[in-house]
Design a protein around this nucleic acid. Structure first.
Lengths: 354, 354
DNA sequence: TGAATAAAAGTGTTCGAGCACGCAATGTGA
DNA sequence: TCACATTGCGTGCTCGAACACTTTTATTCA
């Protein structure tokens, strides 16, 4: 059986002209008489013509070079997942001419970021995917890319006041509220909840503050502010240190801590500590399906993880750029990924998403 | 910049032969000397040749007709979502020649199913997507399709002992365990949990029994069987009836019910009842993001919903058939969709998945 | 040895869109 | 009036794979 696809040629025949003319109308290349143009446009509408993307991309043999600026997964294994997602998208889109160059910089090292971002810019890519964990350092690049007309997609960390093609990631505020909701479901009695920011450069991490806001406001808006007391702490112990001392101090000072909310992927550090202490009573919720987190999730030391879907972030980031560059589609400025609640029982389905 | 794609012609040149010969090797059409064949196969491996799917599908103009056998969404709005998913997949795949005919049958009416399934078979489709809610009636069709070499994909209801191209849906057992996990997280005290099968033909609904098993075994395996008592009931009140009387009787008989697990999308019926009674203390968990369920989820009468992603089921079902028919890919026999835990706070992200 | 026949290999067209090119008709200026 | 530009429009090639068709080479038997 044959496909009933409307071709340029069909339109041309109906309009009593040639496909070249229709083509000029379709691409606004001018050099067409006004009356013919009108007629052709009408027929296009009438027949509901849609260009055959398959033929289109077969013809246009150009490649699109996308630069991906990602922190080194050897420093923080969280970044393995976005790279996997990027790879997956690359495979799917290679046939459409998408080519990705990875620029890996060291987290906690602004110079490394600057160097790599400069390198990427020098290659004059057709688009950029970036995890902007260095807020201040990234700003001038955004400006530069804008002036160079290079579309850039942010992921993981939402940054206000710039205009990327698109942001991909989660709604941090909602994320905090969700954590609060789950914890409070398991805590019928009045108690204290601890919010922990672990090994993060807070001035550069507005999204973690937003998470905390969402967390705190959940209790305020639900009129449970009196039953639940929220305390937040920053802990920093870079370079092979241990968290124990910090937590000892906090627990000593704050009595009645019934639950801990870790705002990044470092919940396993807290879990290790709780396990050492044998404190099975403290509820623990954190982020991301890293191997050490999964260990403790299976042991139920970590009760829930919220999946930020870092793989999906990389995947969709590249896809959004492709949608813009190749398929000339409108791209929504924000693509929020779902806030997946993960527990031992449903974990498997989120490990290797399709 | 040009794409560096390896073409049949490239292989031919290297092998010192013509593209026709390479083509015959690629498609095992014979009529090629053994030594040439070997040489070409080696070069193919060496150059890591992958056929350009874009050119392939441009050339092959054939259409694939897929029959979709789905219950009427006017009878049970649950089925709206799979139809939406099918529509979405249809749009994406129309250019590749996928054509979908929908055969809508009445749930609770085996004759209607038989009639539609017969109708679909008569059209001799290239593939079938089916929600096999009538176990017994569906079996002979599976047999027939197998003999006709028509691949069929099951979704929503997993059926053992048949060999579909693929099953798409959830792991019912895990689903039950997950419900148990969440409820027990919110119930520190010993109590009774009620499992409800509402308006279901149980002999035809093995997957609901499996859910119950998963639910019960969660408590057994966690050594909490003594703290948590599980009671299960079937309730049937077709045709505009009310659930209240049934639930009154159950609650009177079983004291200390602290939570209810509804195994299908009818949690809203229970929620309406609980709201009437003003019982805010009973935890309620159910399935699916139907409008009435969402109402009660936002009011927090329903505490959690597990999303069976019926839209995704339809969507992936069609895609799996396309992967098989068009792209000649191996299709995994089971595609479990994630068990998404939905609450008021993360609901939005699951309503219109990309 | 030569004709008949089978096997092996090469050629050319198609799919739909894009775009370079070329041709004809009209317009413009000296 | 001629030279040349501009406008309007049509033709034909390209992309990579598929496949029908043709041509060349090898094999068999009289």
């Amino acid at each position: 059986m044959k496909k009933k696809i409307i071709r340029i040629k069909d339109i041309a025949e109906r309009a009593g002209t040639s496909k070249g003319t229709v083509d000029r109308v379709l691409h606004n290349r001018g050099r067409v008489a006004d009356d013919v143009r009108e007629r052709i446009l009408e027929i296009i509408k009438e027949l509901n013509y849609e260009p055959n993307r398959i033929a289109q991309s077969l013809k246009s043999q150009r490649t699109y070079n996308i630069a991906a600026l990602i922190p080194d997964p050897n420093e923080d294994s969280y970044w393995e997942a976005p790279l996997k997602g990027i790879e997956k998208a690359e495979k799917e889109l290679r046939q459409y001419g998408i080519n990705i160059t990875r620029y890996i910089f060291t987290p906690h090292d602004e110079h490394s970021f600057n160097a790599k971002a400069n390198e990427a810019t020098r290659e004059n890519p057709d688009g950029v995917l970036i995890a902007p964990i260095f807020y201040k350092e990234a700003l001038p690049f955004f400006k530069n890319w804008k002036s160079l007309n290079i579309p850039y997609v942010l992921f993981n960390t939402q940054i206000e006041s710039v205009e990327p093609l698109c942001y991909i990631g989660q709604d941090s505020y909602r994320s905090g509220s969700l954590a609060a909701k789950i914890l409070s479901f398991g805590l019928p009695e009045p108690c204290t909840l601890l919010v922990l920011h672990i090994n993060e450069d807070i001035p550069n991490s507005a999204h973690l503050i937003t998470k905390e806001e969402g967390f705190r406001n959940f209790f305020k808006q639900n009129g449970r502010a009196e039953r639940y007391k929220v305390v937040s702490k920053d802990i920093n112990f870079y370079e092979g240190g241990v968290i124990d001392g910090h937590l000892d101090a906090i627990i000593k000072k704050e009595s009645g801590i019934a639950a801990i909310y870790v705002t990044n992927s470092k919940a396993f550090e807290v879990a290790a500590y709780l396990e050492k202490l044998g404190r099975k009573d403290i509820k623990l919720i954190g982020y991301d399906l890293l191997a050490p987190n999964l260990d403790y999730l299976n042991k139920e030391t970590i009760h829930f993880l919220i999946n930020q879907n870092p793989l999906g972030q990389g995947y969709w980031g590249i896809h959004q750029l492709a949608n813009h560059l190749i398929f000339k589609q409108e791209v929504a400025p924000i693509k929020f990924l779902p806030l997946d609640i993960i527990t031992k029982e449903n974990l498997d389905y989120y490990l290797d998403p399709a």
